[in-house]
Nucleic acid binder design. Structure first.
Lengths: 355, 355
DNA sequence: CCTGGCACTCCGCGGACCCGACTGCTAAGC
DNA sequence: GCTTAGCAGTCGGGTCCGCGGAGTGCCAGG
């Protein structure tokens, strides 16, 4: 593979057209097709020569001798990075997105799920969403509630909503007043902090001052840990059945691999998490990102591409939206869809955020 | 179809054997196979005659002339109802179930989800679980928590855990004391009731006594409504990729139909809900129930069967576990698995229930 | 009532075949 | 030197055919 092949204008156009045709038809595209459907001003023989060079350069491959060409990973990559013209949302799509979020739930898990359904419906592919990870939320309130002499409810509220709630059982009777006092102390101490800054030592300090039992201290500590830790990152996926329409998934083994990935949330999360980390740390504007075929570093997904977009929650972009589909996906449209949905999702979450 | 055909002993044995063979091999079974694999004491010609009569009686069908027989819906039905010998859990299975629940979550949604994963893994089919509907829970506690002068958190706890929590915003300042007084009044009034018996009028009465604002009254009323209503019944499904192993789902159209059903929770719920109603009202012991092929009243599922088992939560059996797979499923094993899992699930939920 | 035998049916599979869609190459033209 | 027409070659996919195997239904005889 000659990776220093410069693309002159005509080669670029041919490559772009091959990708475009293949995305639309799912058939390898040949030189004659190109001359017939596009006005190139040269004969098919010339195109053949050009295509042969593009293949030598690693941009195109032949599924077998005497077939047309299809794009390689590198071909798609150049298409996405340099040849494709960016699209914007159609009126219709943006209206549907707007309508959907207008009556969206206020509960994070539900919103995430609803968003994947929307995005899979619009994109005709598999949509995935990761909820903003909890640990960047601001502490709002903690309350120990007396239920019975030996049971209490511990609730922790953050800017993202109720982050932890658990029923605790005590081996000795506890007075409601003591619980209230502890709640007040914790609240005045932690008010205004972000959750990362509320650690076990802080909890211990407050508990020591008020001389609460070790049992209560441990329960409170555990509740804060639960509220703090990302725990199971909320993740949702929808639209697997869309993939059945794509000819590349008529092969049962590939299909099974995909389904397994979708059901194993862990794998699904890993697939997108690195992007998340990259975007969370980098100070750059959250932008759509495309990974193609082997760039995904998973054999089962070597014929897939993923479009990811972080979405902003407050002024920290920590959630992630993704579309998974065949490499042969309409990148322009999907990028626009994912970006638009991410923006609306972020706006919606900010609207329902606890102030 | 002669539906009054009585099955003599030999016909019964032949039918049972055909079903059994077909379940194991997925191949139409012929007369010679039967005589070879099972010691029948008669020749294949006799079997042929018997099978012809079983076909006339509607128990067997031929996929095409000159092929072996496969069971019809009625054939499976008689097998399940009268011919099959009930199985019990293997040591291995019950151990795995026990282990799974030992470290199961305490959160209802998570438990449900984990259970479907377990059951789909054990059964090699698609597993579905519906959480006990909320409205049979007992009221435990309500608390209005002061967050800021104009925002409060309302939490309602039932025997099933935190049933509703919402952040409310007020247009005028609210004192923490007022919230506490209201909480106390509501708690003393509603203590001991089941959630169905806590209606909007009850809330209104308490609010009127304490002269709280209409805004607060409405918010509390809405919270109770949210806690009371089944809302979106919690439902989970897992193991769709297991179905790919079954030859009957190699047909893409059937596969798509199934996947659509799994992703549309509404359909999935309807599929099982009638069983739930039947079992909740009837005072009989919760028992596994099998529906076969067209009994499911859904064309897409005409080649599927579903095993459903209600599970007890407290002394009301209102949740539901289900296994969906091809009609050609090992009924005995799956019934045992579903029952065993349902029992463990019920026990687990009772253990973590708030007392 | 059972059984061995026989003719028949139908599916699935492999092989042969052809057609169509490409390509690569070459030689000639601008 | 780039472009082009023409041509030979290659390969995949569809179709047709023929065959073997599995299984049935029926009949005649025990």
């Amino acid at each position: 593979m000659n990776d220093k092949l410069e693309l002159d204008k005509r080669k670029a156009f041919i490559l772009a057209t091959v990708v475009y045709e293949y995305i639309n038809t799912a058939e390898p595209v040949g030189s004659v097709t190109l001359t017939q459907k596009y006005n190139l001003g040269v004969s098919s023989a010339t195109i053949r020569n050009e295509m042969a060079e593009l293949e030598a350069g690693g941009y195109l491959v032949q599924p077998h001798t005497s077939a047309g060409r299809i794009p390689s990973d590198a071909g798609y990559r150049t298409y996405v990075d340099r040849l494709m013209q960016p699209e914007s949302l159609t009126k219709d799509d943006s209206r549907r997105i707007r309508d959907e979020f207008r009556e969206a739930s206020r509960e994070l898990g539900d919103v995430i799920e609803q968003t994947t359904r929307l995005l899979s419906g619009l994109s005709g592919n598999l949509a995935i969403a990761i909820a903003p990870s909890r640990d960047s939320h601001a502490f709002k309130h903690v309350q120990l509630i007396w239920l019975s002499p030996r049971t209490s409810l511990i609730v922790i509220v953050t800017s993202g909503g109720v982050a932890a709630q658990r029923v605790a059982e005590w081996s000795t009777d506890v007075a409601a007043d003591d619980l209230t006092r502890l709640s007040n102390a914790l609240n005045s101490r932690f008010g205004g902090r972000v959750m990362e800054d509320v650690g076990a030592p802080d909890v211990d300090a407050v508990c020591a001052e008020l001389h609460v039992t070790a049992q209560i201290r441990d329960a409170v500590r555990a509740s804060f840990a639960a509220a703090r830790e990302a725990g199971e990152p909320e993740i949702a996926a929808a639209g697997a059945q869309n993939l059945l329409d794509q000819p590349e998934f008529h092969d049962l083994r590939k299909l099974r691999a995909i389904l397994r990935i979708v059901e194993e949330q862990r794998t699904l999360y890993d697939l997108i998490a690195d992007e998340l980390a990259a975007d969370a740390t980098g100070g750059t504007d959250p932008a759509p990102h495309v990974r193609i075929g082997h760039e995904l570093r998973a054999d089962e997904l070597s014929e897939c591409s993923v479009v990811t977009v972080p979405y902003r929650f407050g002024d920290r972009g920590v959630g992630m939206l993704a579309i998974l589909g065949p490499r042969r996906m309409p990148y322009g449209r999907l990028i626009a869809l994912a970006s638009g949905t991410a923006r609306s999702l972020g706006d919606h979450l900010n609207d329902v955020e606890i102030r």
